[in-house]
Design a protein around this nucleic acid. Structure first.
Lengths: 344, 344
DNA sequence: CTGAAAGCGCTTACAG
DNA sequence: CTGAAAGCGCTTACAG
């Protein structure tokens, strides 16, 4: 069964293709009668515009690209959901590609999307990425790009972020407020801005409270798909290295849950022996025993806002208006649960 | 900066567009010299074929649609990852849409994808879906469609599945083998084939072992984003209704983890008082205390195979060969952990 | 080996 | 209000 085209509708009604096209697009210069006739015939023949032809003419595909470091990740799933929900509202499709936290792959994915001529790109950077030419290249071609969560401060495009430093400060301050004196930090990898910022927030909170910063209390984890294991291993190592630690601020809930599991196994009491604050408010943090105090990170909202900003830029571009990059900062909050408690 | 076209390359070299096109596509009837020249110029000008024009000519977009009931779901994330990894290998893009387990939305998404002229569709059905005209319509238009995980037996398209009945039987048999005599089942919603099959597997295992089937021991859960809560509630209800139950086979790990959390809270010992087997082998099942025995369900593999099958059909279609729907069944296995144990 | 020409299905500036 | 025509950028059957 061949798809129905404008031509067939035109032939059926013995009018021109032009008029059919105009009628279907509600151009004002078509008589009501003709319009009605055309619409009816189109509906009857189950006409669908050939999107390939439309794309070629209008030079837009109503499709955007989304590059995510890792799809199997609760936070990113939430972001994806926010993006596709918002995109759907505006009639946009979303093509998802995964960078696997690899710079090379990320470059390749950008290239693929540019070849595909998507209208715009949403991206959360790979941990490895420290050079941004592939991103600025996109911008140079007047293709809108919006970064979210894992961003590069140096690149002058719109971004949707949280204030990681502030959030980490809040988390660490909470540990201090509940009586912790010697606080460790399980941080993320070295490059990504958000793991740097969380580290800096942790450090600043210590200093502001006259607690010494001790670099040997900072443990690194990849935060890869082995996060849970890393949490366990870091927890075990910490017990070996520093038995005097009484609090930990941990880069992600997943790692924190690994740590809790290890502490539970070894009979370390939380929060009596060690208090813990995680990051992201993954729902499992309220399922683990003890429940995990954490920073709530609004993933769905982040996805939604990222698309909204991209959409604005898409529209501005169509109207030849200039686009001013915008930094959108979403609020985070501290969720207090059983892994932290003021002990009397 | 305007994109470079074939025309520009042709003008630069003073040859025809035809020859440029052929040279870039390695047609044999182009001299080596010309080919080299064209390739060099194209590279230099950073030429990228306009995919819109290519789509229009070739009538394919190298893009497939994927409809998922719920993106924020560990199992489905894994499937998505498998799909996009495999699609990328073959040079295909994947557009993701979410049905939210709603039949109406699912219909709409199918419609959107058909308008978009994707080359093929992968779908896991919404729980609500009990009419399949929207699916058969796709097939009638010679658009390949492959179902996975949540399928409809009645629709004659390719499917990638596991043997839910067998897996559930295996899970229940394991409970029986470890000494359980009165086994409850937390099942999924009424419509989806896989929750029906898991229920039937449970029932058959009971009967084969001369244990009476008691419908009051079967609890339903939506398996929505409230799964964890449902697990807790069902567990609480079960204790109230049937204090003599000594084992539960639970439809998904997420629900099972909710149940474990509730039992832990109430001081019910697992597996001493109640043994539990879950379904899916979500990584949290090895993080919870006690670790959860479960059925391993190969999500990544399922995604991979689903795309592979779709790709085969896409190729067959292009060669005008007939397509025979294929049912691909993936193996599952029982993972024994601490939530089940033979007690002496 | 090279190229002129048709055509994919649409949109839209322009003429009447 | 209607329609002929150009053109988006490519591919490919065909002629030379």
């Amino acid at each position: 069964m061949k798809p129905v085209t404008l031509k067939e509708i035109a032939e059926t009604l013995n009018i021109s293709i032009t008029t059919v096209s105009k009628a279907l697009k509600d151009y004002p210069d078509v008589s009501k009668k003709t319009r009605k006739l055309v619409r009816e015939t189109a509906a009857q023949l189950n006409y669908r515009p050939n999107s390939f032809a439309v794309n070629l003419r209008t030079k837009e595909s109503k499709t955007i690209g989304l590059i995510i470091p890792e799809v199997v990740h609760h936070f990113f799933s939430t972001v994806i959901k926010g993006i596709i929900a918002q995109a759907e509202k505006k009639g946009y499709f979303v093509i998802i590609l995964q960078s696997n936290e690899s710079y090379e792959l990320e470059k390749k994915q950008i290239d693929l999307l540019m070849s595909k001529h998507v209208d715009g790109i949403l991206i959360s950077l790979a941990n490895e990425t420290s050079d941004f030419k592939h991103i600025t290249d996109v911008m140079d071609q007047d293709k809108p790009i919006v970064m979210f969560d894992k961003i590069a401060k140096i690149v002058n495009c719109s971004k949707v972020i949280i204030d990681d430093r502030k959030a980490a400060y809040m988390a660490t301050q909470h540990l201090i407020d509940t009586g912790c004196k010697r606080i460790a930090h399980f941080r993320g990898p070295l490059l990504p801005q958000n793991s740097i910022d969380r580290f800096l927030g942790y450090k600043k909170a210590l200093l502001d409270n006259d607690l010494p910063y001790d670099s040997s209390l900072v443990y690194i984890c990849d935060c890869s798909d082995k996060s849970f294991e890393e949490g366990k291993n870091n927890a075990a190592q910490l017990l070996k290295d520093h038995s005097d630690v009484d609090g930990i601020f941990i880069n992600t809930d997943m790692v924190a849950i690994g740590a809790i599991t290890e502490f539970n196994k070894r009979g370390i009491k939380i929060p009596e022996d060690i208090s813990i604050v995680g990051f992201s408010n993954w729902f499992m943090s309220s399922a683990i025993t003890p429940t995990l105090s954490t920073i709530d990170q609004p993933g769905y909202q982040m996805g939604k806002m990222a698309f909204k900003q991209l959409y604005k830029e898409l529209k501005a571009l169509k109207q030849q208006k200039e686009v001013h990059p915008k930094i959108i900062e979403l609020e985070t909050s501290l969720v207090k649960r059983d892994s932290t408690k003021t002990l009397i």
